[in-house]
């Protein structure tokens, strides 16, 4: 394709990225560096601040149960409520990623079953990539940037909750060193979604054709946007290998939680995605 077409594709995907994803990297970095006129985020660094900040997270689906009144019981419940609200937010985010996928030219013309497969296998990878701009080495923004939760606090939760986020921090700190901006991210997300090697695809060729065009667009975009960053295109693509391992480990952890946590019930949409995934 002509470079003008590739640039138009990049612009189109950037516009739908801005339309569907409420917290951009630009905004997140402004919040994290204190360069915004908005209020600084509320910091959650221990159980007390989690309980204080709970009203800012959507925790209403799971009211405090009467029969547990000991401190340990209450803390256990606060943890569970927090992870339930993480699930609700993740389900919302899946819906946003779906709208973004539908805006990729040609996506909605693919076989509907293949669209489902691409989302099923791609969406957690996309969500992990989208978490990276919200993170730094010390913690992560949540609740649309209203809250900063520290990495140490997440590590201090009981097993297996404490194991959930640490691998994402390790990945994100390295990924952020590539310094992609929102317009680069939009193209990279589309490349991830259009992976022709997902298990069970019926018609691979049109998916690979679409991905090839987006890859050309990403390559051109990175050369133009980051002229001094050598081999950036190759480095970005290499991240896709790390992502698959992260998703496999994440799904295993969720399965483990389903078995060990009696109070744990997985959001139906997340269940659909994770069932028979890897």
């Amino acid at each position: 394709p002509e470079s003008a077409d590739l640039r138009a594709l990049a612009r189109h995907l950037y516009e739908s990225y801005l339309k569907y994803f409420p917290l951009t990297k630009a905004k997140a970095r402004a919040i994290l560096s204190g360069k915004t006129s908005d209020n600084a985020p509320f910091v959650i660094h221990d159980m007390k601040s989690l309980m204080e900040g709970e009203h800012m997270i959507n925790c209403r689906q799971m009211p405090m149960q009467e029969h547990r009144r000991s401190d340990v019981g209450i803390m256990r419940e606060v943890e569970l409520r927090f992870f339930h609200s993480c699930q609700s937010r993740s389900a919302e985010a899946v819906s946003e990623v779906t709208e973004f996928a539908k805006s990729i030219p040609g996506f909605v013309n693919l076989d509907l079953n293949d669209q489902v497969t691409l989302l099923k296998y791609g969406v957690i990878e996309v969500l992990i990539i989208m978490m990276a701009p919200l993170m730094n080495k010390d913690g992560t923004l949540i609740s649309y940037g209203q809250i900063f939760m520290t990495r140490e606090f997440l590590k201090s939760l009981r097993k297996p909750f404490c194991e959930m986020m640490e691998p994402k921090f390790e990945f994100s700190v390295k990924f952020n060193m590539l310094e992609l901006d929102d317009s680069d991210m939009a193209l990279f997300l589309a490349v991830i979604i259009l992976s022709g090697d997902r298990p069970g695809l019926l018609n691979v060729k049109p998916i690979e054709d679409l991905q090839e065009t987006v890859l050309h667009s990403l390559e051109l975009q990175l050369k133009t946007n980051h002229p001094d960053s050598l081999q950036l295109f190759a480095k970005v693509l290499q991240k896709m290998t790390d992502l698959r391992q992260l998703v496999t480990d994440h799904v295993q952890l969720i399965q483990l939680m389903k078995e060990t946590e009696l109070d744990w019930c997985l959001h139906p949409l997340l269940q659909e995605i994770m069932r028979d995934l890897y």
């Binding site: 919302e92 819906s95 509907l112 989302l119 099923k120 139906p268």
Partner: peptide, 20 residues
Amino acid sequence: KEKHKILHRLLQNSSSPVDL
């Protein structure tokens, strides 16, 4: 199709993200 009915619904919904 039954196994992924919410994903199907999200994909076939023509407006903005659906309320989950």
